[in-house]
Design a protein around this nucleic acid. Structure first.
Lengths: 331, 331
DNA sequence: CTGTTTTTTGCAACCGGTTGCAAAATTTTC
DNA sequence: GAAAATTTTGCAACCGGTTGCAAAAAACAG
């Protein structure tokens, strides 16, 4: 069916190796044969089979991309950036959707079977153990949006969530809030834990009183909405720090539904600065997570591991910053 | 490095074919050898290389998934559903992000090189010519969310956009609107054209006056917002039909920004019924596109083509329905 | 023009599986 | 228990490329 190396070789009147060499980077072929081969290939509409090449070279140019949150639109930005960054480097993403049902070890197995060249775990909710499984299986792995550890045993690219939580506390204080609430992401997520911890610690330090504290059950709109309703039962807070923009939007809608206006009756600060945070209906003051830097950096990292797999584990942290919009009262 | 067939065979004391057979569906092996092989494989931690298998069987279990809109959160739902549906069928998505810069023929080439078993073009904006390229290259292809044609030459799964546009007109009439505006998706998209055409036709038939008509430049929030501002310069309409929910949200925010309230001053009807349409800040009345049915059906279709590639081109259309929320005045 | 060095080329083995075929082993039949 | 029918097994060729190695060709030096 498809045109093969052999046919091209015959037509060009050269050996199969000659054809192979004209199609592999940095191999030595004379200008003359290269020309002959290229003509023959063009005539026949030949393009080398990546499968066969992969088998021979033990390289697939496939990068496993593991994600487990398809509810949060941030991830669409994430996919967009990943697919583009990989495509530019002549790599392909093999997308794995890790639902709660799927057995983690199964997907390790799976990606091993496809012999992906590397894996990017793009999730702030997956436990580190997950990325480890790949390290153990000897496949280059980087955990993007993962939990920062001072003595990492795998590559981590992300932010210092603890510090960013503290930043939220400072921002609330700057806006002269005294009593606040914390509405975090799912408690099982390391990112949610760390943001909460940093927020709590710093709040204590600067005399900001946390009157309520609650973890939503997912990084999702509905979860934020529902958690906010609960929070509203005992409304002694003047502002809420939400561990995620999407949760924050749900929370804001719940607050408005209860007849509160923002920021007059209650202030909000979110986390991520997703595209939608700038929408007029929300115009969310939020902590910006440098998504695109994290993604580019994690791709670069995984690429460099292709050549030097034994690279020492590295942590790359990017700074977050406050984006002021209109959900906190003017200072 | 990785454990191979041969090593398992040696350890189990059988031939390589025996090992191969215990790992391929429907091959004949005795219970006894199967047991021996399975034990050896377990001991060694063997899992067959899909690359090698692909080379031998000429099947990769890879499905190319082509998308070109990573701005619209609907596509996150789309990716979620696709990845799950494929995973359940033991197939993997190879994601191609078709930005405006990428050369279409290059990605055809690319997917051919990876010898994907099939391709799903998931886009309502790509021209049909695109899916054709795959048909020509002899790879099973279905165009999901594609333009309906009565004499299709490739498989199409989607909706009758023309009819759905008409449905929008009827809904506006039902709510006693007389003068309306049309705010479509990008004019180059067949879906936008068809929705517009159906809307216009039906409006004329039932005596609904279309006072303005405009195409946004993308299926995106900002585009909707911007187009609405333009529309507002000459506000003779009482309601707007937006060719997409996201555009509609942008438009609503623009209207609110201009001091209008919804639905008192101006009504809105969207298209898609994406998750966010139910959000309280919008609570959008919209035409529901049966995304999940379309996706499941297109996966089934592509799967069935794997076995019978010569299947006659088929069109599968799913009905849309109106979801009433609060952006049209009560009838 | 010859001898040396460098570049190009083809051979053949290999990557890790699958599969048609015939021989061997097992089961069934009488 | 032998013959026939059926199932299981191993051999060997194949899928479509890459690559180390040695021979051949080309380039260079004197």
């Amino acid at each position: 069916m498809a045109v093969t190396l052999k046919e091209v070789a015959e037509r060009a009147g050269v050996s199969r190796s000659a054809v192979s060499r004209t199609f592999t980077q940095g191999a030595s072929v004379s200008a003359k044969t290269r020309k002959k081969v290229e003509k023959a290939a063009r005539d026949l509409g030949y393009s080398p089979s990546l499968i066969a090449r992969s088998l021979a070279t033990n390289r697939t140019k496939l990068i496993g991309l593991i994600a487990n949150n398809f509810q949060n639109p941030v991830f669409l930005e994430v996919f967009d950036l990943y697919t583009r960054a990989l495509q530019e480097r002549n790599l392909r993403p093999l997308l794995v959707n890790l639902t709660d049902q799927t057995d983690p070890s199964a997907s390790v197995q799976l990606l091993k079977q496809y012999s992906v060249d590397g894996v990017i775990v793009a999730s702030s909710t997956l436990p580190p153990l997950f990325a480890h499984a790949f390290k153990e299986a000897q496949v280059p792995v980087v955990h993007a949006f993962g939990r920062f550890a001072s003595t990492p045993d795998i590559h981590i690219v992300g932010i210092d969530n603890e510090h960013c939580g503290a930043l939220a506390a400072e921002t609330l204080q700057k806006h002269r809030y005294k009593r606040v609430a914390f509405l975090g992401g799912p408690q099982s997520a390391t990112s949610a834990q760390d943001r909460g911890a940093g927020f709590t610690r710093r709040a204590k330090e600067i005399g900001l009183e946390i009157v309520s504290s609650l973890y939503a059950d997912a990084y999702a709109y509905n979860s934020g909405q529902q958690a906010m309703r609960e929070l509203l039962e005992d409304r002694r807070f003047e502002a809420v720090f939400c561990g995620d923009d999407l949760i924050c939007m749900g929370a804001m809608d719940a607050a408005r539904d209860a007849g509160l206006s923002i920021p007059q009756d209650v202030g909000f600060i979110g986390f991520n600065d997703m595209n939608m945070a700038a929408w007029q209906a929300y115009s969310l003051t939020t902590i910006r997570q440098p998504t695109s830097e994290i993604i580019l950096s994690s791709v670069d990292l995984v690429v460099s591991m292709l050549d030097t797999p034994e690279r020492a584990p590295e942590v790359r942290l990017f700074p977050c910053s406050v984006v002021e919009r209109s959900t906190l009262r003017p200072v």
